[in-house]
Nucleic acid binder design. Sequence first.
RNA 1: GGGGUCGUAGUUAAGUUGGUUAUAACGCCGGCCUGUCACGCCGGAGGGCGUGGGUUCAAGUCCCAUCGGCCCCGCCA
Length: 590
Amino acid sequence: MNQFISKDKRTHYCGNLSESDNGKEVVLMGWVHRRRDHGGVIFVDLRDREGIIQIVFNPEEGETVHSEAHKIRSEYVLAVKGKVRKRPEGMTNPDLATGQVEVLVSDLEILNESKTPPFSFDDDDISENIRLKYRYLDLRRPAIQKNLFLRSRLASVTRRYFEENGFIEVETPFLTKSTPEGARDYLVPSRINKGTFYALPQSPQIFKQLLMVSGFDRYYQIVRCFRDEDLRADRQPEFTQIDVEMSFITEEDIMQMMEGLMASIFKACLGKELALPLPRLTYADAISRYGKDNPDIRFGLEIRDITDIVKNSGFKLFAEVAAQGGVIKAINANQASRLSRKDLDGLADFVAIYGARGLAWAKVNAADWTSPIFKFLKPEEIKGIGQLLNAKEGDIIFFVADTPKVVHDSLGNLRLHLARKLNLIDPDVLGFTWVTEFPLMDYSEAEKRYVSTHHPFTSPFLEDLHLMTTDPGKVRARAYDLVLNGSEIGGGSIRIHRKDIQARVFSALGLSDEEARLKFGFLLDALEYGAPPHGGLAFGLDRLTMIMTNAESIRDVIAFPKTQKAACLLSDAPSKVSIEQLMELSLKIV
RNA sequence: GGGGUCGUAGUUAAGUUGGUUAUAACGCCGGCCUGUCACGCCGGAGGGCGUGGGUUCAAGUCCCAUCGGCCCCGCCA
């Protein structure tokens, strides 16, 4: 035994064999994907990470091997030696990459048996429950392997790009200090310092800024980050960031550098050329035209403001909303008249999710509209709306009247919903856009104060500084997000490097000197020792991989993901710990 | 914190207004078969319906609670 592994080394991957290997003696290792036993000849589809090859056991080639082959079952691990040969005329399999050839086996060793797997590796609709419990089997599926190979390539191209451009990769700590701004932290109790806690980083933000103070000039890191917030199809509690920071630069320099990175990645991973520079939108435009700060620009259906047209409308709701400082906006779903009355009612339910109390609609006919609100509107209003939205016969216009936030949320999401329903998105188009000039701060109703849109170290536009005390919501930030196909794949900013400006921002955020010092003291100290002008950005590696692989869930691009309840079904984490462990940490469960 | 949806053999699903031994396909096991590639043919085993209560003569079907998967709102600087 043990002829294989130690002596007869593997010569080829299964999936790499082709006609050019015809006649070669090869040694293969792999898993039994399927077995077809014809009584005489036995076919086995042998699978490894590169693909599948049909191997043949023929009784005429040796009775011992053939009888051993009878024992083979699904997912057994085999080592075989044999000769590659072209398949006989008419016996090729065009559905298989290696379908022109097969391997006639002369030696077989069953390296390991396998229990019958709990699900089929061909099946696409296995419950995630089962998939995640047996993740090591789920990961045998070629589709998922392909995702992880692309992810690895993406990371590798990224490293090469940054090395070529003079960046240094520096590791920053995972056991660090809790920063109460922003997301919830994952906490780690300190045994040595009882009653105190480390926090796992939500991002290496402060450390990378410190590295700029230290003079490293150009830093990057592919780094895990942690946020203890609720999960979504594109959100995991631990995720990977491509983290970047540069000194002595403006936003133009960063954006250019990052566009180069995107071009390298898409070229190397997907063979796609990007047209640079990438398009740009201001935050204000993104919101007003698309209702979102992560607009999907691959299709139209843009939002139009009709407040001025209908503020004195005979339709009382519009007039009232306008009088109360709300807005009335609309989108034209071109040629959507095939939507049924039932569909339209469904859309009203859809926008209700985002707080809209109603969804008015109008089917555009040659001479008039079919619409519940038609009779309330004056002819000039109908004309004005029709012109602004370029309405043609067969179109359906949708209206929402409410606060700006509700209008933008509901129409922004309705726009996406309709695009999918009406099949308006070309899957081959890459909808890149930068979104710039974010507001520095938003008013938080929950906290009754202004909070940072991005983070408190983001530099304001200097020309907006005078608004800091009078109208903080109007101050623009030197921040920029990169959006791809309606997904925020990265974001960053020019940072504050001057202590006086940092103090003004903290004060606008309602942070006292003491509080600021308590939370970020070490950064503030550092800014006093010759901090260079600097800025950076971070990409979500998982989300980028998701888009590039067309994955529907972030779990499909992460080897061992968590469920929506933040659990790992494979390892059963999180789990209870012993009382001894708790005592050692001086912790008590309340 | 909230809304929605799902949980029935190993897997994927079907199970009408509650009613005899709970279906099917694939998989699995056994037999036959020398060219298939979702091989074919014959035969067989396998679950008591996520869990715990309850209503009822009778519950997979109704009610309550609970656990878990997924999607979404809030949240995610």
